[in-house]
Design a protein around this nucleic acid. Structure first.
Lengths: 251, 251
DNA sequence: CTCAAATGTCTATTTATCTAGACAATTAAA
DNA sequence: TTTAATTGTCTAGATAAATAGACATTTGAG
């Protein structure tokens, strides 16, 4: 029997059908497709829609259940749980903790690791220091309501911010760590945004499923004299965060 | 035989090993891992590195070859071709064609379709018109050197821009279409950026492989009096584009 | 309670993916 | 020219994914 191509599933892609279907349903939920019903169509209906066997759809639903997006119950159907995506503002005054302010969530930064390194060309160019000059590195995890949303790698010039990692460890905030070292205010100079698949380590920290996507933001912060004070690479869980760039308001 | 977990491959993810490995190598190339050699390690070395059979690695390389990223030749090895990623600036003066200016590429916009629609709540809110009010819709494809980099859905309020799709068709540029209708200048008011997997239709237009990622930018443009003139949803091929947000320069 | 609709579980079979090994073909260097 | 290193191609077998069907279990409506 030859098979007709059905809605959006590709049988030669190296991606299992159940995973393609899970991704498809996740997107459909995000687009509000089943909002009025509050639940997914029945497994048989979904199987017809995607042109696959009911068991394949069940595997997809099991994956979505594992991600906490839906909840299936015998007799009742498969209910859609919350689909929350935080909006992270990016502007001249971008800070992680205050960014989530109006969204009634509990923001939190967690220390992962820190150390000393010599600046790569990339870091040196961003911080306007000599390549090979010493940097404080700091890795941290950003959470909202206990759910990981970002994984950040910060770089600070050692000559000015030696020991800032210890301040971060106590204060659990880059802004407060800066304040503790006498830098009361700073501004975002540039942000470079791209997207890619998360690697294994990133998946672990951000609790992503394989194939999960991260938004990668390369950011430079500077003091009010324009001297770079921080270069960060932040990975946002693309399923939980969108980045909002306001180019209109006072920056 | 029980198998030990090797570098970054997951055998229960619903993603074929060859595809995981292809994604992994693509990322490594992007990070410059094999830059000095100019080619990948041998298939046997890669097979050991990922803990899989040589044939599985070969499948991964075949996929990368299909994407035009590498070129394998008997006796010579697998050479790495160009890895180009355009940098698309996002600022108050964002325009597609001029954005790629300094990057020595031939930018081009292609008309796909246009029509009339009543504004959804999302579109109405962005354009500050009544929900259900008429809009001109316009779909276009952005290319650089003939390679598709973006797929855009534009919305314009009909009351002010009826027929702008015809101007776009002739001028092949939104900026010039605006100019032809008497709007000499406009500015970007806000841009909302997220990332997700491309669906089948998007993959076709952007020539992406299954599992391919798009950066989705929701943008509002306004005239110099602040009245919204355009609401766009633009999908950038994440492998070919990064978005650069300058929050420092004169916006 | 009874029934219809839904999800849960089981077995069996087919198809795709991965592993294993052998050997051919091509290239670049000794 | 010889040799080593590399990719290309073939066969065969093992493992995982998908299909197919039957039937049990749970839930909500009538």
């Amino acid at each position: 029997m030859t098979r007709t191509k059905q809605a959006g599933v590709d049988r030669t892609s190296g991606v299992a059908l159940w995973r393609q279907i899970a991704d498809d349903i996740r997107i459909a939920i995000g687009a509000g497709e089943f909002r009025e019903a509050g639940k997914l169509p029945g497994e048989i209906a979904l199987a017809e829609r995607f042109g696959v066997n009911r068991h394949t759809v069940r595997a997809a639903i099991a994956a979505l259940q594992n991600e906490g997006i839906v909840k299936a119950r015998p007799g009742r159907g498969t209910e859609i749980l919350d689909d929350i995506r935080l909006k992270m503002p990016i502007s001249r005054r971008t800070r992680f903790s205050s960014g989530l302010g109006g969204q009634a969530r509990r923001p939190e930064s967690v220390y992962i690791a820190s150390g000393e390194a010599s600046a790569s060309e990339e870091v040196a160019a961003a911080l306007r220091i000599a390549p090979g000059a010493p940097c404080v590195t700091l890795e941290s995890l950003g959470l909202a309501d206990g759910i990981p949303v970002s994984l950040a790698f910060h770089h600070f010039p050692t000559v000015r911010f030696a020991g800032i990692d210890e301040h971060f460890r106590r204060e659990r905030s880059v802004t407060r760590a800066f304040a503790a070292m006498g830098l009361a205010d700073y501004v975002r100079v540039s942000t470079d945004i791209s997207a890619r698949h998360a690697d294994e380590r990133e998946r672990e920290w951000l609790r992503l499923t394989p194939g999960g996507i991260v938004l990668e933001a390369l950011a430079i912060n500077a003091d009010l004299d324009g001297a770079p004070v921080q270069y960060s690479r932040t990975l946002f869980s693309a399923g939980r965060v969108s980045l909002h760039v306001g180019t209109d308001m006072e920056l």
